[in-house]
Nucleic acid binder design. Sequence first.
DNA 1: AGTTCAGTCAAACGTTCGTTTGAATCATCG
DNA 2: CGATGATTCAAACGAACGTTTGACTGAACT
Lengths: 209, 209
Amino acid sequence: MAPSDTRTQILDAAEHLFAERGFRGTSVRAITDRAGANLAAVAYHFGSKAELLAAVVRRVIEPINAAQTAGLDQLLARNPEPTVTDLVEAFAGPLFDEMPAGDEGGARTSRLIVTILSDPAEEMRNWTGPAEDAIRDRYLAAFRRALPSLPEEELWFRMRGILAVTAVDRIQVYNQPNPAGVPPLAGEAARQWAITFLAAAMSAPPTQI
Amino acid sequence: MAPSDTRTQILDAAEHLFAERGFRGTSVRAITDRAGANLAAVAYHFGSKAELLAAVVRRVIEPINAAQTAGLDQLLARNPEPTVTDLVEAFAGPLFDEMPAGDEGGARTSRLIVTILSDPAEEMRNWTGPAEDAIRDRYLAAFRRALPSLPEEELWFRMRGILAVTAVDRIQVYNQPNPAGVPPLAGEAARQWAITFLAAAMSAPPTQI
DNA sequence: AGTTCAGTCAAACGTTCGTTTGAATCATCG
DNA sequence: CGATGATTCAAACGAACGTTTGACTGAACT
């Protein structure tokens, strides 16, 4: 435990609570209570609540970035012109993979991601860095080669569609028990369904205007 | 102005601010300031901040509900077995149509919808009522008839994909200027792109497991 | 033994929040 | 005109918030 233990316990607690209640909906007191730490520990270890959020986001996002990069590298090493389905899988797959122990089927991580993406709090907005930009641009270029007839704007729209589906997927958008007793989405099935769904969507012919 | 004017000015201000900063990120003071009303007016006209939110949501959601219902009615009157594309258009189209005056290309309304859908605040969760459930079930049944080979769970997953794309579409998910100087998404083009994207996604063959 | 220093702690600070209060204002109608 | 009921207003309430403070702890060093 080189990182002082309470530091990581605070990170764990904050990740859980930010995912569940959002940034503004989570008080520093709730975090330190859950972590079994003192209230002042957040200021001591992270400086402020906003900087704690940044640390939580970094810890969640970095493995996803690495997996997306590695996936594209492998694809391109094997074949300079990957299929749309391959690209979708390499890009969207890692968003389903991260399931820290104790996460209920990955739903909590998904929730955190969508909270990050859609939280209107100003602190949530400035988390993307050069790394995320570079990854997005590399995939954009690969998709452009795989879909040469697609106009740039529509390609850009579809890239965001991927993010929307993968981010929101496991949230109970219609917040009620699923109809007809459909069980909550299983992790692996959701991953496959998303890839099917998104590969078909990305492969659609350009919209006629 | 049968509804006492300040009442609707508060509704307008609240709609704008909830969309931009979320429920918890918007103070009652910010709302009444923007509305040019007194702080106590919210309590007087709506009872509480949470009830004000409910009123805002109702005002935004009801025209969408009506359009979705009317669209499906028209489709079924013309043909008892509508195509997937027709169903997608009737369901997702109204989510693009609502553009109150002063809305910058509908982006603000979209932002409000995604804020409603993904806001972790407890008050945001309990807005769906029997109306939304009924609409969703009718579309679910129509899609089921149009896609008879699709398992129930995957159909359900795809329905939520529609909501994810339509809700998140106009948010700058990667919050930075679009790459290569792509202009912000035009309202009508985004609507067409979304229908193309979603119709292809919905029409994909079932996932093989 | 004495010093140092990262870490923890209880307590308090000042601010902002949603809500309540009670008086003031206004239009309406007898 | 005077009374009534709806609406607006300035002011205050108590609670919760993020952050700061300064004393305390305990292991690691000379």
